[in-house]
Every structure is written in C-alpha cells, then in structure tokens.
Amino acid sequence: MNTDPHLFRFRSAHRLMLAATILAGAGLWALPPAAQAVTIAAIDVPAEQTVNGANLVLNGAGLRQRFVFQVYVAALYRPQATQDVQTILDSTEPQLLRLTLLRDINSKALTDALNDGLKANNTDAQLAAMHDTIQTFEAFMKTGGEGASGDLVDIHFNQGKVSVSFKGKALGEVSDPRFATALLKVWLGEKPAQESLKQALLGQASAH
C-alpha cells in the first residue's frame, strides 16, 4: 500500500477539482457577482447598506429621467442580489429603495408621480382594495415639504410594511403586503416609470 503523503495530497486535490468541475457543470457552483459601488450622474452609490441591523447589498441602480431632465438616481438594496422581478415583488425580506434627488422637487409632486405609477401597474379593483392604505401613504408623504438636489428619499420594505424617510426624517409607515408589492411595481412592474431604469435596478443593464 502506497502511503506517500505527497501522493495522498495530490489525489485529494484532484478529487476536489473534479467535484468543483462537476458542480460548476450542474450550475451549482456559480455564485452571484459581488455587489460593486457605482457612480451615476455624479452620485456615489455604495455597494452595501445597513438598515435596522440588516446588511443589504446593491441589486442595481440607475438614472430616472423625464424628457431632458435628470430627476433622481434610484438604487435598490436587498439581502441577496437577484435579477428575478417576481422574487423582489414577493419578498418579505428587508429591501431598500433609495432615491437621491437631482433637482428641486416637493413631496406632493413626488407623491403624485408615485400615484401615477400605482395606477399604471394595478387594476381599479386592486387599487380599491388598498384605498385606505393609499390614503394613509399619501397623507404622510405630503408632509415631507420641499426637496432639493442631493436630498434622499428612503423607502423601506420589510414583512409587508412600507416606511418612508425624506431628508433623514421619518414620514410614516403602512402595513399592507399588497401595497408593498404595488409600490415596487412603480419601478419594476409591466409599465414601469422608465424601462431602462427597471433594467438597471435589476442589474440587467448599464446603470448610466
């Protein structure tokens, strides 16, 4: 019996390499790429965020434009990056959508734009079923006041709850899993605010 330790280490290493090759061929060895920080419209978007003790990684980020105007940079963070829309829409895990404003805008105008997105991606029946939640959301959103370039709008999703902070000030929270999904559809639905931004948030296209 050959007990050469060098031969034993070689055979062990060979077995590990063979196993890795088989796993890779089966699609089980592949891991999602590590999130990387990006810069969009002169806004630095970090690769990670910590929200209420949860470590979130950048799923994707992109520029929201309306006509020739740059409106905001949007960045989506979640526990693990994914390009699957339904996974994001159905998730009960912590998720953060951060909007960094690129122009002056008041909270009423932002709320109106979100309402347009809700109407575009949900049926009348769905909106009617969420009427009270939407009314509550609108009411606290409109208390945010004026926003300027560089201000942050943070929309937190967790366990069916949606909370919003504007310029670092908490505006309010609603608890309705249907609304959490509906609000995400503003950016990720079949009729998103901007198709190129949707793809960027999913990490499927250039963020710039």
Rank of each mutant, 00 (worst) to 15 (best):
N106Q: 06
L127P: 04
L152H: 15
N158P: 01
M141N: 12
G150V: 11
L127A: 03
R98P: 06
R103I: 01
N122K: 08
N115L: 12
L114E: 03
V153H: 01
N121P: 03
S165W: 06
L96Q: 13
L118P: 02
I134F: 02
A113V: 01
T133Y: 03
K119E: 08
L114M: 13
L152G: 03
H131C: 00
A113Y: 01
S149N: 03
L102D: 10
D151I: 08
L99Q: 10
A109C: 02
K161F: 03
A148I: 11
T133L: 04
N115H: 09
D104K: 07
A129N: 09
F140N: 02
K161T: 09
V164T: 11
D112W: 02
L110Q: 04
L118S: 00
A125C: 03
Q95K: 01
L114Y: 10
A125V: 11
R103N: 12
D151G: 11
A129T: 11
F140G: 03
K161L: 02
T136Q: 14
N106L: 11
T123C: 04
A113H: 01
G144L: 00
M141L: 15
M141K: 04
K119T: 15
A120L: 05
N115C: 04
R103T: 09
F140Q: 04
A109T: 10
Q126N: 12
V164Q: 06
E93M: 10
L110C: 10
Q95I: 01
